[in-house]
């Protein structure tokens, strides 16, 4: 794994360990979606999320998927700040229309900002083997199918 990939994995695990995301992985596997809020306004950039909402039943989403939403916070207001509230409001609306019920954490500390600014990343974690795989985003149907296969293995 590249240095950037390792850094990303450490950050995600740190976020999970900090308890900002809860839920038991399916067969010790979880998929983390790191999403820049900005892509939600762009249909071609966020269609893959709609595909996930369509393809994965709510119980699978709730158990095995995790989202971390990062957003622009130039004034560093952090949790409870105006930007943070806007991020939550827009994610709720976005998720509601796309049947996304996965647990979500907001990157109020801007830990992922540099990593996914202007885009997104999907990370597939196998906690048993310690394997991490990064899928390129937008995922498209192939990527969503790979996530489904990963979670049902």
């Amino acid at each position: 794994m590249s240095l950037a990939g390792r850094r990303l994995a450490v950050l995600v695990l740190a976020a999970a360990a900090a308890g900002s995301l809860t839920g038991r992985p399916i067969r010790n596997r979880s998929v983390y979606l790191l999403i820049d809020l900005d892509i939600l306004a762009c249909s071609p950039c966020s269609d893959w999320l709609e595909e996930i909402g369509r393809a994965l039943p709510p119980e699978v989403q709730a158990a095995a998927l995790r989202a971390v939403v990062t957003y622009r916070d130039p004034d560093g207001e952090g949790a409870g700040g105006r930007r943070s509230r806007i991020a939550r409001l827009q994610w709720q609306g976005f998720a509601r229309h796309r049947r996304l019920v996965l647990p979500v954490a907001f990157d109020d500390g801007q830990a992922f900002r540099e990593t996914v600014a202007g885009g997104a990343a999907a990370l597939l974690f196998d906690f048993e083997t310690g394997m991490v795989k990064k899928l390129s985003v937008p995922l498209g149907r192939t990527g969503v199918a790979e996530i489904m296969a990963f979670l049902s293995r």
């Binding site: 939600l40 105006r82 509230r85 409001l89 827009q90 709720q92 609306g93 976005f94």
Partner: peptide
């Protein structure tokens, strides 16, 4: 506004 759901974007 950030505390209202009148508009999302």
């Amino acid at each position: 506004g950030p505390d209202s759901d009148a508009l999302l974007q």
